[in-house]
């Protein structure tokens, strides 16, 4: 029993990371109907920006919670800027072209970031400094949780609620909803669609950067191709929850994380990556709109 509970704790921690990345996918999809395949690579960039910020602040030798927060924020800001540049330079020019053109552009941006990362950072893995010394907290029944896991969970939750607040209760958020519902009508109502799209990319990239730093705190090995698999899995998580649906992305991420850890723990680690795609196939067969997604009749 305690083994199972411990696996659940591990799974929820991983799941909250997938949820953070999946949020970015789902927001961009909700607004543009575009799957931004470069999103996983923004997660990688987040980890690397955090790595350099930590080095600059000398956070490895002299860790403090304030420095850890600074590392997180600087990675988020840097990736937010990358998100803006990415949207303006790559996606805006093809926004009025076919959806296939945008999709191929996304794959191109992804390859650019991966190989650019190899060029800039080198292909060797780097090791993220321990800016928060690990401590274990016993939860009873033989279950332990590390302070880093608690941090991942709480930062993810805070960011998810912040996102929910922005989308539901601010003017920009309402504009985002409007653009998602009908961009043409939103533009007629005086909403600057361009600004909203850029803002969405920035927000999504910041969440991915936060996920990158949080994961690197716990699993310190970072390398330029580290974003591919988590990116794909977060995409599956977004589809699983219902793409375009924000609570769905969070739910999908948690389901993915738990499923993955249980498969590794009880079946075989060989299926660690396979389970994501099995889930994708099952959900597409059983409930194509996703767990929380609504079936929208296509107008003909």
């Amino acid at each position: 029993m305690s083994e199972f509970l411990q696996q659940l704790v591990n799974g929820v921690t991983w799941g909250s990371v997938y949820a953070l990345i999946a949020l970015g996918y789902t927001m961009v999809y909700g607004i543009l109907r575009l799957i931004n395949f470069a999103h996983g690579d923004v997660y990688m960039l987040g980890a690397f920006f955090g790595f350099f910020a930590a080095r600059f602040l000398n956070a490895a030798r002299d860790p403090s919670p304030f420095k850890a927060l600074l590392v997180l924020l600087s990675a988020m800001v840097a990736c937010g800027i990358i998100g803006i540049v990415m949207e303006r330079a790559a996606y805006k020019p093809v926004r009025r072209s076919s959806r296939l053109a945008a999709l191929i552009t996304a794959i191109g941006v992804s390859l650019l970031l991966e190989n650019g990362g190899i060029l800039l950072f080198g292909p060797d893995p780097k090791f993220f400094p321990q800016i928060i010394p690990a401590r274990n907290i016993a939860l009873g029944m033989g279950v332990t949780i590390s302070n880093q896991q608690i941090l991942i969970l709480s930062v993810s939750l805070v960011l998810m609620f912040a996102l929910r607040f922005i989308v539901l209760h601010t003017r920009t958020g309402k504009a985002m909803q409007a653009v998602s519902y009908n961009p043409m009508a939103a533009a007629l109502m005086g909403i600057s669609v361009d600004r909203i799209v850029t803002f969405t990319f920035m927000l999504g990239s910041m969440l991915a950067a936060a996920a990158g730093v949080l994961v690197a705190l716990q699993n310190p090995k970072i390398e330029p191709l580290m974003g591919i698999m988590p990116g794909l899995k977060a995409f599956v998580a977004a589809v699983l929850g219902g793409i375009g649906n924000i609570p769905g992305a969070v739910l999908g991420g948690l389901v993915m994380g738990i499923a993955e850890v249980l498969v590794v723990g009880y079946v075989s680690p060989t299926y660690r990556d396979a389970i994501a795609f099995v889930l994708l196939i099952v959900i597409l067969l059983v409930r194509p709109a996703g767990i929380l997604g609504r079936n929208v009749a296509e107008k003909v």
């Binding site: 305690s2 083994e3 696996q7 699993n219 850890v261 249980l262 680690p269």
Partner: peptide, 14 residues
């Protein structure tokens, strides 16, 4: 290439 071994280690711990 894996970087998370917690699931396996939890099974070992049991």
């Amino acid at each position: 290439g894996d970087n998370d071994f917690r699931a396996q280690l939890t099974a070992i711990k049991a």
